[in-house]
Design a protein around this nucleic acid. Structure first.
Lengths: 215, 215, 215, 215
DNA sequence: AATGAATGAGTTTTCATTCAT
DNA sequence: TATGAATGAAAACTCATTCAT
């Protein structure tokens, strides 16, 4: 039995990779790329350092894999939104709320992406499979905007990419910069109340903008 | 006179500190806190490592000083806006444009602040003089919002802190995440045209929101 | 066989530890704790600095291990004395001579222990296995003293711990402070004649004291 | 007045040296030669590092001066014993007790001398004025021993230098090695009771030895 | 005489990566 | 495949000493 379990472990390299990636993601998110320690990742994943280097060639490659997995997950979640099935306003609200909630529930995403930006996206640039990964969502949003404009609900001069960036920005920045904002505004922003207020504010801003047709 | 100047140089520890801080800011912005090398800061500043440790006690303290200087500069620039002298809409536009331009012209600010957020603002928390440093600006903005509402130009339900965070977020996030965004949208966002478009979009969003009085 | 031996070497971390400890002991004894250089220990032991830090966590831990080994060796040597097998006077003389000879042959012991005392025994305090390591010897001495008193050879008011400290002190101090004593008495004390004279003097003092029953 | 005080300071370099030496002695005793910091000595003495280097040429020279002062003080105290004015036994007891008390009251002496021995007396060897500084005391002790032997109180085969070293050893070692002894005997030796017991034991040993004429 | 800023060689320690087994 | 001991290059930080003022 023990033998069989061992064999199982031996024969499931994907499971191994997943475990390593999970540990790596946590470590990179906690300590940043430069602060992360391969030793700690090994300890957390219960595999040896040698094995990690066997599966991934370097710390950089490991980080790249973490990022790819991260964007892959986000894409999958976004695909579940089925924006095309909703009326323009409802669709936009769904997108806003889902985007905010996703970042709020996945603080590691923000940390890791910020890290990657500090390094000028050098890892992501090598990942073909994340290129254009937001295209489906952008297209759905463009459709909503077009329909909204045609129905007279939304203004007609809105660029879908810019708007999506704005929807992300309003939540991402708040969550990403919470620590320093709390200091410079001398007010803790991390509480559930503050977060709920923020989420409502974001919806107000985006909808207020879209529905102001005198633009 | 030359003599005096020489003496001045020798005896001007503030000048020295400024030079060190300048070099440190560049290195921290380029490499991040963990990636930054005190050796490089010494080389860039033309002073010895020993001197750096004589003036600042540790790499952490040096980073803290860089951050303090950074927020100090931003506060000073913000004070020059004289928002109180303008009509509501003009004032808000000034604030939006100035904020965006400031971040665009000072990419180091974003890098350094992101770094500090990755470290949970541990350095900034020790800096008493940055606490509430945005209070004057927030108050000016609150006044503009109130006047704008009274004059019937702006909606009346806007929280000044949330709005200011939004104004910052819309530009900061774009600039901060430009590298990864360029990859996932497969479209270079750093060019002057893109930046100008972005700036206009931000103004549109904020004004569109504020001037939509149907809440 | 050769193969096996090679493997042995590779796989014998205890041998490695012993080699490192040997080099460390020499360096610490020569230069003192603060004066000792981990670089030199690495060079002497033919292992890399990294390996030393892999086996021992810090310079302090390395020093602690050296001390533990030191006391371990002394305990083992003391156990070989079999004091219980001898008549009181002969047993005491054996102890005196062995103690003196041990310190004379192991000058590193004195240097290292003096160092540890300069540091208030901070390392030894963490070593559980040296606590009470002299208890067997003290007990044997106590037995000898009791027997000697019963047989009318020794005085009856002697504390075994105090006496053992005295036996050690008379030799240890002479060897430990030889350098300064040679200066202040303007007379080299390190020669074999001086040492032999000293050893005889110590035996005279202790026996003279023990056998003076008018105390 | 202030002026005068300043002048006074300026004109009293000996006072300055004394203050520096006092601070240096404390620092060297606390941290050992290698552990001592010139910066700390400067801070403690309220003089600048430059001044310290002006008066003493190096850390080594400073340590040498501390040692010289130390032995000078001990010599002066010993001269106050007036051993020649006492009967043999009383004189020897005075010497034993004074020696023990001196070390007990001046723990720095032990620390500093041990340090110097770890460095093979390299500093003391350069100090002409400590050579033979114990000659007067040794001579007084020799006289006491001779008188005691003539009066039939003491045995006649005692070398004064060996005996003096023993008198010192029995107290010095106990005080010097108290930290490690407390660990290996698992018993705190620093308390006033233990010290008093030790002092009595030393007197017993030396007198017991001297008065045992069957030697 | 007096200061303390400035230096640079050197310390302990760390860590990504390799490699023998 | 899998391990983890081993390495070496580099990191933050220290400190006796010097030197311009």
């Amino acid at each position: 039995m023990a033998n069989r379990a061992a064999r199982q472990t031996r024969r499931d390299p994907e499971k191994k990779s997943r475990d390593i990636l999970k540990a790596a993601r946590k470590e990179f998110a906690t300590a940043g790329f430069d602060g992360a320690r391969v030793d700690k990742i090994a300890a957390k994943s219960k595999f040896s350092k040698g094995l990690i280097y066997h599966h991934f060639q370097s710390k950089d490659e490991l980080f790249r894999s973490v990022l790819e997995q991260l964007y892959q997950e986000l894409s999958e979640e976004n695909a579940e939104l089925y924006l095309d099935d909703f009326e323009p306003e409802e669709g936009v609200v769904r997108l806003i709320e889902h985007t905010f909630d996703y970042f709020a529930k996945n603080p590691d995403f923000i940390t890791l992406v910020n890290n990657e930006n500090l390094m000028k996206a050098q890892h992501l640039k090598k990942s073909e499979n994340v290129r254009k990964s937001f295209e489906p969502l952008r297209e759905s949003l463009a459709t909503l905007l077009k329909q909204g404009a045609e129905q007279g609900d939304f203004r007609g001069d809105v660029d879908s990419t810019e708007l999506y960036i704005s929807i992300v920005a309003l939540g991402y920045f708040y969550l990403s910069n919470m620590s320093t904002l709390s200091v410079v505004f001398d007010k803790p922003l991390g509480g559930p109340d503050s977060v709920a207020v923020r989420k409502q504010h974001i919806t107000d801003v985006i909808l207020g903008y879209l529905k102001n047709k005198e633009g």
